[in-house]
Write a protein that binds this DNA or RNA. Structure first.
Lengths: 351, 351
DNA sequence: AAGTAAAAATTAAACGTTTAATATTGTGCA
DNA sequence: TGCACAATATTAAACGTTTAATTTTTACTT
């Protein structure tokens, strides 16, 4: 590949002149400028950014570490990151940790991952990335990250309790609030919940949102309406019976998968979701648009999360002061109202 | 960040010695070796690969260009690429072209993409990638790629007619053959097809597979059983009526989306997929596992395609001779038999 | 025509490594 | 003791850029 020296030699000028021209610096006559640019075209010259970076000491690249590319939320987040990085002319060094094993539609965390994570981060900083974005990092993964990194980092779609690293997360409290408010607007008062795993922060925030919606509408919170699930379809199926016994008129599932389980059980009981019992989900997984009837749910702002994570890290690189609100930035979800929540029937349903 | 010079100074040796030790070269005493390694730990030193690459002239990175991260097949392919690259200690520079706009679950190709593609490739080669993998590239995208690139390239999951670039593709002919053979095994003789877009190479290969299955079972090919679709759900819906008129006992849809449309229409007609009419799909999209009954379909070997594409390019980098079979490498699909194809009823069905 | 300021171009060092060519030290043996 | 040779260590150039400092050329004034 052609180098700046060849260009210089061919044009009969010094390398400094060529460099200046290439970088749009002043101090070269239009004539040489033209001559050089032509030669650049002719030799199909691309400046060696590796060499340039060595001198200027910025690589204009950031490392993106994902736990597993094939998890449904990740590609959209990465998409958001790439969009902003392209605008800012940063390049992405992708590390796909492949930390999960899939089994029965369910992902299990590999247990041999400590060394992997450390090594990969080492590679990244050896490659002189200017910053690192962790995407959807698991609590356990975070533990492998050296406390002191020579470059700034941000988390996208993952909580870190230590909070040394700014993170961008879904505003789950607000999302749950919105969908539950929608159910209340449709006249529902006895709204059952099928939760996610008990210790998940997503689950806790979503529950908070549910409670706030009730509270703001002066509906008494009834713990009996809360049925603990585990994010998987079966727990939605199982929870349905429990909630039906409590006479709920609507079921809010903390994800679409469990809502699928609810649909299954309702069908077996000859109850039609959306007509006999209203159902809402969360996450807007592709498949929930094809449920019968299509599921009303909450769309995760995955793309935005990636985009904003990238914004934050690039602001850090520019040494811009981060507002306090940036330490944990919550991005709003938006509701996707389809057909599974309907206005409550006649009146057999006094509160 | 610490440099090799500091290590050398602190240990009272020359940089060459440190470099040799770091690269496991002979010619240093165990004693200095130990001293240096300790200092490396202590200062948390990572060699600057940028500088190293400049000298050694290999970057150990390859560029991966995807058209749009959010297309369903892409993350799995990328996952396969990363798996192999990690084994070979190559790093990935990811370019997400974002060439599509999504509208109604359907992707449209942006029309302002020529300059984007060229620029991004330029960036990649400026960053000294040693090779480039195009993932799922659209014919139109390929046109933007300069004919002469200074580094080898391969295509994953995309055909190029010009065939200057080796490609790794799905063996669609075989996949279709397998699923149709399965239908035949279940006793079906009148098997309708809902195709993809007419000019798609995937569609053409899948049709070939269908024809071969018939041929090998001495079933006459009847063009009336072929109904042209467009990959989208609606065309499956529409095609159902046409095929039902021809008295088919089974419908092979060239993707799962259209099979969903078939299900919809059958349901309206009070026909149960898998009992009254057998249905098969193609692609194994997540959602088809939740159809009622779950759809029998063909699983795309996406991960393998990525993995093999990476293998091929790394073989090219090593100047290994590629076999002829590598120019277009076809990767086998595997059938996923669920509940939507059943043995044909009694016998109202003479051929 | 000389002087000078502005414009254009060059020189050389530096970025952090690797590596071939040398130089220095240590060891065993006659 | 001196020599040969192996084992260690060092020097210096190179990779392809950028950039501050410097020099040369050009153009304008008087």
């Amino acid at each position: 590949m052609a180098t700046i020296k060849e260009i210089a030699r061919e044009c009969g000028v010094s390398v400094a002149t060529v460099s200046n021209i290439l970088n749009h610096k002043p101090g070269a006559s239009d004539e040489t400028r033209k001559r050089v640019m032509e030669k650049v075209k002719e030799l199909n010259y691309h400046p060696n950014t590796i060499a340039r970076n060595l001198k200027t000491k910025n690589s204009r690249s950031i490392g993106v570490i994902v736990e597993d590319m094939t998890i449904f939320s990740i590609p959209d987040i990465v998409d958001g990151i790439t969009e902003h990085c392209e605008e800012e002319k940063y390049q992405i060094l992708l590390i796909n940790l492949r930390l999960y094993k899939k089994y029965n539609d369910t992902y299990y965390h590999r247990d041999d991952f400590y060394p992997i994570v450390r090594d990969e981060i080492g590679e990244l900083i050896a490659k002189q990335v200017e910053g690192i974005i962790y995407v959807a990092a698991h609590e356990r993964t975070l533990k492998c990250i050296p406390e002191t990194l020579p470059v700034p980092a941000v988390m996208a779609y993952g909580y870190t309790r230590s909070a040394k690293v700014p993170s961008v997360v879904v505003d789950d409290e607000d999302g749950a609030y919105q969908i539950v408010q929608h159910m209340i607007d449709q006249g529902h008062r006895r709204i059952g919940v099928i939760t996610g795993k008990r210790d998940s922060p997503h689950m806790q925030d979503r529950l908070l949102g549910y409670q706030r919606a009730l509270f703001e509408n002066q509906i008494l919170y009834n713990p009996e309406y809360i049925c603990t699930g585990d994010w998987f379809r079966d727990s939605g199926y199982a929870g349905t019976d429990l909630l039906l016994k409590k006479n709920v008129t609507a079921i809010f599932c903390m994800n679409d998968l469990m809502a699928g389980g609810v649909y299954d059980r309702l069908e077996e009981l000859n109850l039609r979701p959306g007509r006999d019992i209203s159902v809402a989900g969360y996450d807007n997984r592709e498949l929930s648009g094809y449920y019968k009837p299509p599921l009303s749910t909450i769309t995760l702002p995955l793309h935005d999360i990636g985009y904003e994570a990238s914004e934050i890290i690039i602001r850090m690189l520019r040494r811009e002061e981060l507002g306090l609100q940036d330490n944990i930035r919550k991005v709003k979800c938006y509701p996707l109202i389809r057909k599974s929540v309907s206005a409550i029937q006649k009146s057999g349903t006094a509160v």
